[in-house]
Design a binder for these strands. Structure first.
Lengths: 104, 104
DNA sequence: ATAAACTTGTCTGTGATACAGACTTGTTTG
DNA sequence: CAAACAAGTCTGTATCACAGACAAGTTTAT
C-alpha cells in the first residue's frame, strides 16, 4: 500500500547549473553576476537565462546597483526560494536513502 | 585561488527518473521491470529507454529469466554503478553544503 | 568627442533528450 | 485460435541547455 509519483524533485532547482547557483546563494547570502559566472563556468548568455528562470520562479531576487561606478547585479534567495531549496534537499535525501522495502 | 568546473554531477544518474531507479536498486538490490514501472510512474517505452541507458553506461546489470512461466527482467546495480552512485551522492553533498566563502 | 573596455542582456540556432503512445514480438493460458 | 501479459522498438513532439553573436548602457583613456 503505497505509491507516490516518486519523481517530485523541483526541476527548476534540480538542473545541475541552477543547483550550483542556488547552493551558492544559500551559503553566501548574495552573489554577483560575475561571481556566479566564475563558479559555474557558464557563458554569460547562458547564466543570464538561468537567472531569469530562477527570478521568474520567485526563488531569487535580483538587485541592480551601481558600485564603484560600475553596474552590479546581485542575487539572493527569496524566502520562497530558501524554502524550496530546503524542500528539494529533503526530497532528495528521502529519495536516495529511503526505506528498504522488498522489490519484486 | 580556486575554481573548479563545479558542475560535475554525473548526468546519467542526476536525471530525476534515473535517480529514482538507481536509488531503488541501491536499496533493494534487485528490482523487476514491472516494479520499477510502478515506483517511477513512467510509461513502458520510457522506462525501457532509461534502463537501456543505465545498462549501456555499465551501471546496471540486466537479467532475463522465466519465472512462473512468465518473462521476468530483473535489474541490479553493478559494482561500477554502485561506485558511481556513491560518488554522485558525495558530489551532491559537497555541492549543496559547501564551505561558505565570501561572494562578490 | 571618439574609441575602447566593462557589465549585462537578448536572440538565434543546434543538439540532446525526456516523454507519450502506437505498434511489434514472444510466451502463456483459455 | 484468441486473449492476455511482458518487454521492447519506433516515431513524433516539446523542452531545454548551451555556445556564441550581437546590442545597449556606463566609464575610462586618448
Amino acid at each position: 500500500m503505497s505509491d507516490a509519483p516518486s519523481i517530485v524533485l523541483d526541476p527548476v532547482i534540480h538542473e545541475a547549473a541552477r543547483l550550483v547557483i542556488v547552493s551558492v546563494l544559500n551559503e553566501c547570502g548574495a552573489a554577483s553576476f560575475n561571481f556566479l559566472l566564475g563558479t559555474t563556468g557558464l557563458t554569460r548568455g547562458n547564466l543570464s537565462a538561468h537567472m531569469l528562470r530562477l527570478v521568474s520562479s520567485g526563488y531569487v531576487h535580483e538587485s541592480k546597483q551601481i558600485v564603484d561606478r560600475k553596474m552590479l547585479t546581485e542575487y539572493r534567495l527569496t524566502p520562497v526560494g530558501r524554502k524550496a531549496f530546503a524542500k528539494y534537499r529533503a526530497e532528495w535525501m528521502r529519495l536516495t536513502t529511503g526505506p528498504k522495502e522488498q522489490a519484486t
